[in-house]
Deep mutational scan, measured.
Amino acid sequence: RDEDEKEKIKEALKRGNEDKAKEIAKRANVSPEEYERLRKEAE
């Protein structure tokens, strides 16, 4: 379940949809550090 959320965040970031990614991260309680890591992976 947690991994699904992280995949959704990465997908949103790949599409350049940072607002959606942040919204998912907030809902999934993803830490800022984890969010940054996902953002780097998505580049």
Score class of each variant (00 low, 15 high):
residue 40 K to M: 14
residue 2 D to W: 14
residue 21 A to F: 01
residue 2 D to P: 13
residue 6 K to M: 14
residue 10 K to G: 01
residue 40 K to D: 09
residue 20 K to N: 07
residue 24 I to L: 11
residue 23 E to Q: 10
residue 10 K to W: 04
residue 41 E to R: 06
residue 15 R to T: 11
residue 27 R to F: 05
residue 21 A to G: 03
residue 16 G to F: 03
residue 23 E to D: 09
residue 21 A to Q: 00
residue 3 E to K: 12
residue 23 E to F: 04
residue 27 R to N: 11
residue 14 K to V: 08
residue 16 G to Q: 04
residue 42 A to R: 03
residue 42 A to W: 06
residue 8 K to L: 13
residue 27 R to A: 13
residue 7 E to P: 04
residue 16 G to T: 01
residue 11 E to W: 05
residue 24 I to V: 05
residue 33 E to C: 07
residue 25 A to I: 02
residue 32 P to G: 08
residue 35 Y to G: 00
residue 37 R to D: 05
residue 18 E to T: 11
residue 31 S to L: 07
residue 19 D to V: 13
residue 28 A to T: 07
residue 4 D to M: 12
residue 39 R to G: 03
residue 37 R to H: 06
residue 34 E to A: 04
residue 4 D to I: 12
residue 34 E to M: 04
residue 30 V to L: 14
residue 18 E to D: 08
residue 11 E to F: 04
residue 23 E to W: 04
residue 29 N to G: 15
residue 39 R to Y: 05
residue 33 E to Y: 05
residue 34 E to Y: 02
residue 32 P to Y: 10
residue 25 A to R: 03
residue 7 E to H: 12
residue 43 E to C: 09
residue 26 K to D: 10
residue 29 N to Y: 05
residue 41 E to T: 05
residue 27 R to G: 08
residue 10 K to F: 06
residue 21 A to T: 00
residue 19 D to Y: 09
residue 12 A to F: 11
residue 6 K to D: 05
residue 10 K to I: 11
residue 43 E to T: 10
residue 5 E to I: 15
residue 28 A to K: 05
residue 26 K to F: 08
residue 15 R to C: 07
residue 4 D to A: 11
residue 41 E to W: 08
residue 10 K to R: 08
residue 23 E to Y: 05
residue 30 V to H: 01
residue 14 K to R: 15
residue 42 A to L: 09
residue 36 E to R: 04
residue 39 R to F: 05
residue 25 A to E: 01
residue 26 K to W: 05
residue 13 L to K: 00
residue 35 Y to P: 00
residue 39 R to V: 10
residue 41 E to G: 04
residue 19 D to N: 12
residue 23 E to T: 07
residue 11 E to N: 12
residue 33 E to I: 06
residue 16 G to C: 04
residue 23 E to L: 06
residue 3 E to M: 11
residue 28 A to M: 09
residue 6 K to T: 09
residue 31 S to P: 10
residue 34 E to K: 00
residue 3 E to R: 12
residue 32 P to T: 09
residue 25 A to N: 01
residue 24 I to H: 04
residue 15 R to Y: 10
residue 7 E to W: 15
residue 32 P to H: 10
residue 11 E to M: 10
residue 19 D to R: 12
residue 23 E to N: 06
residue 27 R to H: 09
residue 19 D to I: 12
residue 28 A to Y: 13
residue 37 R to M: 08
residue 22 K to E: 07
residue 41 E to M: 09
residue 12 A to K: 02
residue 34 E to Q: 04
residue 9 I to R: 00
residue 20 K to P: 02
residue 20 K to E: 15
residue 31 S to K: 06
residue 32 P to N: 09
residue 17 N to Q: 14
residue 11 E to K: 07
residue 11 E to V: 06
residue 7 E to G: 09
residue 17 N to M: 12
residue 30 V to M: 12
residue 34 E to T: 03
residue 38 L to D: 00
residue 40 K to F: 11
residue 34 E to H: 02
residue 25 A to M: 05
residue 6 K to N: 09
residue 3 E to A: 12
residue 5 E to Y: 15
residue 19 D to E: 15
residue 22 K to G: 04
residue 30 V to D: 00
residue 2 D to K: 11
residue 32 P to R: 10
residue 27 R to V: 08
residue 6 K to V: 10
residue 21 A to N: 01
residue 33 E to Q: 09
residue 30 V to G: 00
residue 9 I to K: 00
residue 11 E to Y: 04
residue 30 V to K: 02
residue 31 S to V: 04
residue 8 K to M: 14
residue 4 D to S: 13
residue 28 A to W: 07
residue 2 D to Q: 14
residue 29 N to L: 07
residue 37 R to V: 07
residue 28 A to V: 07
residue 21 A to C: 03
residue 21 A to P: 01
residue 28 A to H: 11
residue 43 E to Q: 13
residue 1 R to W: 13
residue 15 R to I: 11
residue 3 E to Y: 13
residue 3 E to C: 09
residue 2 D to C: 12
residue 8 K to N: 09
residue 9 I to N: 02
residue 22 K to C: 05
residue 35 Y to S: 00
residue 7 E to T: 13
residue 38 L to E: 00
residue 27 R to Q: 11
residue 22 K to Q: 11
residue 13 L to C: 03
residue 26 K to P: 01
residue 40 K to G: 09
residue 2 D to M: 11
residue 29 N to W: 03
residue 14 K to Q: 07
residue 41 E to C: 05
residue 29 N to S: 08
residue 31 S to F: 03
residue 29 N to M: 09
residue 39 R to W: 05
residue 1 R to G: 14
residue 28 A to P: 01
residue 18 E to I: 15
residue 3 E to N: 13
residue 34 E to C: 05
residue 36 E to G: 03
residue 10 K to C: 08
residue 33 E to F: 05
residue 42 A to G: 04
residue 42 A to P: 02
residue 5 E to C: 08
residue 27 R to L: 11
residue 39 R to N: 03
residue 38 L to R: 01
residue 27 R to K: 12
residue 10 K to D: 02
